[in-house]
Nucleic acid binder design. Structure first.
Lengths: 184, 184
DNA sequence: GTTCCCATGTAACCCGTTACATGATTTT
DNA sequence: AAAATCATGTAACGGGTTACATGGGAAC
């Protein structure tokens, strides 16, 4: 019986299924632009998964020579790969979700900080959230122009991030208001 | 120059500073009840950090014999440990935050699923979110009764989780409504 | 008398990261 | 001449996980 594979393997498999004929280099870029917000993958890891998928026979690699750029490997899913992807999608989701926030961890110990340190912690958090928000808005804008099922799925995951980010921005304001009361 | 320590080390250090005289076993329980929502720590890892902190001289361990239970080690921060904690809190936060969601990853590939598979994916997601919400509400309720700075900090981090969870619940409804339109 | 709570630990694994290497081609 | 893009890879590390071991006292 085969050992269970990490979700990351299926993430890369799904990407190749979505963008057939792409090189590893291109897949890294696509991953960074698409699901990086809820499933980040580093370049090294993606290449490792490419190896694994090829060994499993789930993707096939083709060498492509280029004139104005170095040669590259391109990938596409095999029938077995598409079946594996479908099986993974059909299986019950084990609710694998992880969240770690350095900001919240520090805020949890904020009673050991000077009040203005707490202020700048929140201010920094707000600006990262705002940057995130703009990025997500741009992504959704770009996807709104396309009316394919894949674009819609991407747009809705971006919306998930946007709603999350907006709620957290409101939280920052809520907390700042509450802390402001005590300082006066 | 000392290698940089992971945030987890400071998380445990902060916990001991917050709950002095606790045993490793108790700290595991406290960590699970307090910052597990944004900084989960497994039992094994926490014990490893306890070792590290003792070796650093940031916490001191005391053996305590018990009559009706096995002997235990209890921990409290040293002056050096408190200084290290303060230094960590004062340093600029490198925005270490990571988020990985198995649900979103699958939803991103939902165009390869049957419509009712998407439906149950969302339904499952909703119930985990609702369970999370109730847990956070209970936590906030319990902390609202206490009016110490540490309780307030804990309550506000719980509020962060609550706002996040609520936004995601609204996202589920938003998405379900949008998918419902197409099925009819 | 089995199961739960207290209490600490070992072993093994591997996912994911950072840093670095290489080399050609194209743009500035 | 330098920097950016394309393209793939190696090496080393470590943080975090799961599974398991142990053992006594308490509770049901």
């Amino acid at each position: 019986m085969a050992a269970e594979l990490p979700d990351t393997t299926y993430a890369v498999l799904g990407l190749i299924d979505k963008v057939p004929g792409a090189s590893g280099y291109e897949l890294v870029a696509v991953a960074g632009r698409s699901f990086a917000h809820f499933w980040p993958i580093s370049q090294t890891l993606l290449y490792r998964e490419l190896d694994r998928l090829a060994n499993l026979g789930w993707v096939a690699a083709t060498r492509v020579e280029q004139l104005h750029a170095p040669s590259k490997w391109t990938y596409h899913t095999t029938a077995a790969g598409q079946q594996a992807l479908a099986g993974w999608l059909a299986a019950p989701t084990p609710a694998t979700s992880s969240f770690r926030s350095g900001v919240l961890l520090r805020f949890f110990f904020s009673y050991r900080m000077h009040p203005d340190q707490v202020g700048s912690l929140l201010a920094d958090y707000r600006s990262t959230l705002q940057a995130q928000q703009e990025e997500l808005l741009m992504m959704m804008d770009k996807l709104a122009a396309v009316s394919t099922p894949t674009a819609r799925a991407g747009r809705l995951t971006a919306l998930h991030g946007l709603r999350t980010t907006q709620a957290r921005l409101r939280w920052v304001e809520e907390v700042e208001a509450q802390l402001g009361e005590d300082d006066s």
